[in-house]
Design a binder for these strands. Sequence first.
DNA 1: CCCGAGTAGATGATACGTCAACTTGATACT
DNA 2: AGTATCAAGTTGACGTATCATCTACTCGGG
Lengths: 173, 173
Amino acid sequence: MTCQLFRYSGDVDTLPHQRWLDQDQQDVWRAWLDVSARLPVALHRDLQANSDLSLPDFDVLVQLSEHPDGRLRASALAQGLQWERSRLSHHVRRMERRGLVTREECDDDGRGAWVVVTDTGRRAIEAAAPTHVSTVRHLVLDALTPAQVRDLGDILTTIGARLDSASDPKDPR
Amino acid sequence: MTCQLFRYSGDVDTLPHQRWLDQDQQDVWRAWLDVSARLPVALHRDLQANSDLSLPDFDVLVQLSEHPDGRLRASALAQGLQWERSRLSHHVRRMERRGLVTREECDDDGRGAWVVVTDTGRRAIEAAAPTHVSTVRHLVLDALTPAQVRDLGDILTTIGARLDSASDPKDPR
DNA sequence: CCCGAGTAGATGATACGTCAACTTGATACT
DNA sequence: AGTATCAAGTTGACGTATCATCTACTCGGG
């Protein structure tokens, strides 16, 4: 994977007023694309091998498990997952069909709905979690030095902040 | 996002023999999940705003543009993208329908197929590339110090290597 | 009380990704 | 030649993600 990000047949100067990426930057960006594509696939496969959960299933169950009674309002859940509400709705429907969660009406708000983890769901995540965590360790956290883990945290926080302000109406670049 | 990765109602010790993540590790892992989920969404939105290309469309066109005549054998293209062949086949079909690429039979190998970028496809990527690159800069490369970019490259390379050996039949942990 | 604006969530259409067949042509071995 | 095997690519089914749209409810004035 040593090719350039753009090498149109002609000269790059055919597109003037444009800063392209130098070689080092291209390498880092390619590496990002590579890892961010393959890591979730590896985690997903790992989960599938040890449980009937997908990565999104797992994320949902983690959120629910973290809250008292294993229940959360749909919007709160969506926000915790950084998902769109419609995505959550679709996903919960599928998980409900498999018995991992149920939906319950909300008393104080007639529009609202609770998403509740079932016993089946609890058993599923408790069975899946150990290997999942150890895969995360093996592929990422234990692969890096403590200093690298710290650096990575700082880097991701910085990028995360950019993403915040990018979706923010202020500073649309 | 200051919650723990796992906080079952009971004590963590109900699942013994398991190393969980400490707080710092959880933070880093959460940050990874957060950024790796939101960055592609931001890039995708950006592309949609300036062109009719999706992120995968863009990736395909980049690969094709990097090669003479803008043509590549399907397998080579799949490998360059790190995609499964079937995924490529589906995607090329959709792109073909929109006139971005065409498929051509291969003379030397009766099974093979070329994927060829059309003029429309070329125009599309040339229109989309400048803003896309500048968004990548804005959100990532220019947000970090040169040292951080180097660090990130090292970190990603390390993880990439783990991913390689994870899918490798040898060392299945 | 009623009306309009906003909110919570669900739904349908479409695009995307994966897996498991399947088809067809290349290769190798007899 | 004949057959087994493998490689290239396609297809169909299904799960997943996004967008636009819809329904039902809440709330804050008139």
